[in-house]
Amino acid sequence: MVFASGYYDYDEPYVPSFAGMEDFTGEVIHPQHWPRGLDYAGKRVVVIGSGATAVSMIPALTERAAHVTMLQRTPSYMFSVSRVVPPINAIRRLLPARAGAWVARWILALFGSLIWLVSRTAPGLAKRLLRRTASRALPPGYAVDTHFKPPYNPWDQRLCFILDSDLYKAVAAGDVEVVTDHIDHFDRDGIVLASGRRVDADVVVTATGLQLQALGGVAVSVDGEKVAPNERFIYRRHMLEDVPNAAWSLGYTNASWTLGADLTARSVANLLAYMRSRGYTYAYPHLGDAHMPEQPAFNLQAGYVLRGADALPRSGTRRPWMLTHSYVRDVLSHRLGDSDRSLVFGRAGTSQSRSA
C-alpha cells in the first residue's frame, strides 16, 4: 500500500480564531474550501496570509476583483522564477525527448538546491539578492523593508516562488495593496487592525495555512495494534518502522514535491522487484534495540511545522533512518546504497524471515 496523500490535512485547514468574525456581513472562505461559483467580480477582497497559497492566488484574483488587499502579520521572502525558461526549452529541442527531459530535470533540481544552499550558508547574501529583486520590481520609494523583509533568514521558513514577478507587478500596478499589521477584530464591514486602521472587505480569504497529518489521516494497524506514525522512525524517507508492505510518498520542503514522489516510486518498484525475485511476500524496516538519536523531521520554523510536529514520524540522525532534505544526496544514496539494508523479509504462512 502506497500513501500518496501528502502531509497536509485537507479537510481541516488551520484557521485562527479572530474576534468578531461572526459579525462580518461579507463572505469568509478558506482556499481549501473554495465555494463553487463564488462571485467576487467588482468586490473588495482581503486575503489574510503571505504564504504560498496567498501569493499564488492573489495575482489571479486581481483579474476580477475591484481591489485586493494582502493582509499579513509577517512578510515572506519572495523569489521570482520565469514561467518559461528559454535555455531549458532549447535543450529539450536539441536533445531526444528522454535525454532532454533528464537534463532539464537535473538543471532545475540543481538550481533549486543551489538556492537553498546559498540561503542556509550565506543568509546575508541571500537577503540582499531577494531584497534587490523586490526593489527593482516595485515602484521607487515603496516600503520594501516593511512589507517584504521578514524578521528571519531565508529558508528558516519556506521561500515563496512567484512567476515572472506577478505579485510584485500587481502591487506596482495598484491592483494589490500589501498591509503588514495584526488583526484586532472583525466588524460588519471588514477588519480592524491593531494599529487602529480598518480594511473594508466584501470577501475575506483566510489563506492562513494547513495542518500536518500523516498518511492522509488513515488509521493503520498491524496485527490489531494501532500504529501511531509519530512514534515510529521513518526509513529512507518513505517507510515506517515495523510497518510491512507500506510506503508513504513524502516530498521535499525545499524542492519540488515531484522529486521526492519520484524517488519513493522508484524505491517501491525496486523493493517489489527484489521481493518477487526471491519469493518474499512482505518486508518492513526494523531498527531493533539500536539507539537512534532524533532530530526534527522538518528543518523549518514555519507555523504549520511547529503546530504539527507531533503528527510527523520520527527522524533519526543516521541513514537510512534520517529524513533528509537534499535531493542530490538522496539520489546518490538510493542508487549506490543497499536496497535491503535494515529490512526484514518473509513469506506469508511461514515462520521464515531474514534481516538485512
Rank of each mutant, 00 (worst) to 15 (best):
A60G: 09
H33E: 15
S17R: 15
S50H: 03
D23M: 08
E27D: 15
A19H: 07
A66Y: 08
A54I: 12
E12K: 08
P13N: 02
Q32W: 13
Y14C: 08
D11G: 11
E63P: 00
D39Q: 06
V28S: 02
S50F: 03
A52Y: 11
P59S: 01
L38Q: 10
D11N: 12
Y10S: 03
I48S: 05
M57V: 09
H30G: 07
Y14V: 02
A54R: 05
H30I: 11
H67V: 07
Y40K: 00
G37L: 09
A41R: 14
S56Y: 00
Y14N: 00
E22M: 09
G6R: 07
Y8H: 14
E12L: 06
H30R: 10
A60I: 04
F18T: 07
I58R: 01
A60V: 10
Q32C: 08
E12C: 09
Y7S: 01
D23Q: 15
G20K: 12
V45M: 10
Y8R: 07
M57E: 10
S50P: 05
E63Y: 00
E22T: 04
A41H: 13
V45Y: 04
S50N: 12
P16F: 05
I58A: 01
R36K: 15
Y7R: 15
G49C: 11
Y7N: 08
A60D: 12
H30V: 06
V45L: 03
V55W: 12
V15M: 07
A60E: 15
G26T: 13
A60F: 11
L38C: 03
A52G: 05
H30T: 11
